[in-house]
Amino acid sequence: MSSSPETHALGGPALDRRGPTARIRLRRAVGRFTPWLLLAPAAALLVWLLAYPLGDAVHLSFTNWDGFSAPKSIGLDNFTELAHDKHFKEALLHNLIIVASLPIWIAIPYFIAWGLHTKVWGWRFFRFAFFLPAVFSPVVIGVYYGMVLKPDGPLNGLLRAIGLGGLAHEWLNQPGLTLGVVIAIIIWSTFGVGVLIFLSALANLDEELVEAAHVDGASRWQIQRHVVFWQLLPVIEFWAIIIVIASFTAFFPLIYTLTQGGPGFSTYTADYDLYQEAFAGGNMGYASAIGVVLLIVIGLVAGLTVALLRWRRRLA
């Protein structure tokens, strides 16, 4: 937006007096700079409030800083300490478990979209209902599931009522289980977006190809695997990128409101650990080091995802 006055001014009537050649030259010059001018406002904001702070976080990670006095440079101390910090390692492991669950994040909306695509009775309504959790704030979800998942809460009540009492659990108080519950809740709150995406993609599907495959005697499963899947691949990639992001950014608020990292440290994630170190412990430097390690992990995961998608594409 801020670039518009410049562009207009340069092409404005004041310049007409210089004659056609000058004007054309100027236009060309402006043309060359147009993309930069268009990028400028976003770039300025990103550099000022994201890239520079990111660099600062890296800088702080080599310091000891309590937030009061000036940061003291301490070299790699924070990182060597991190290597021995068992809670941090546990937290990072949880991040990786979350990442490992991504195929489920893809599969569930994919198959539900298939279900809706048959235009079952009330599919529009389902589409609306499935998206609803994406509107709920983490505070709402935290309070709600805190109530539903109580040992004597509605979920266990339901399980017992339908004779599945054996499946009743202390959902939020079982170290091995609670992280899974948190992941399930996040999937629950995002799958509707995926359904929406896949559903519209299916609507644009090339039906002729499908018909042709059918005429060739392909089974439904074969069609699904060899025709439909490949057609949807770009959409799946798009969704994959979105959920890789979500796997690193969407958990903090829910953990903050629902489990506070518990029971014990079993639902600590690296960014929750970072927050605790920085704001409960006042160890800003150490917290920044956690952030840097987390960034490296994210870089690796993102790189791996991209590589995987490229590889798949080449296979296609």
Binding site: K86, H87, N173, P175, G261, G262, P263, G264, F265, Q276, A280, G281
Partner: peptide, 27 residues
């Protein structure tokens, strides 16, 4: 206060038999 916070995270684990007293003390 951070140690106290950790204590209130670990103690319930101890009393539920998930970690030993030694584990809690060490950590």
């Amino acid at each position: 206060n951070t140690v106290a916070a950790q204590l209130s995270k670990e103690a319930p684990e101890y009393f539920q038999g998930r970690i030993s007293m030694e584990d809690m003390q060490k950590s």
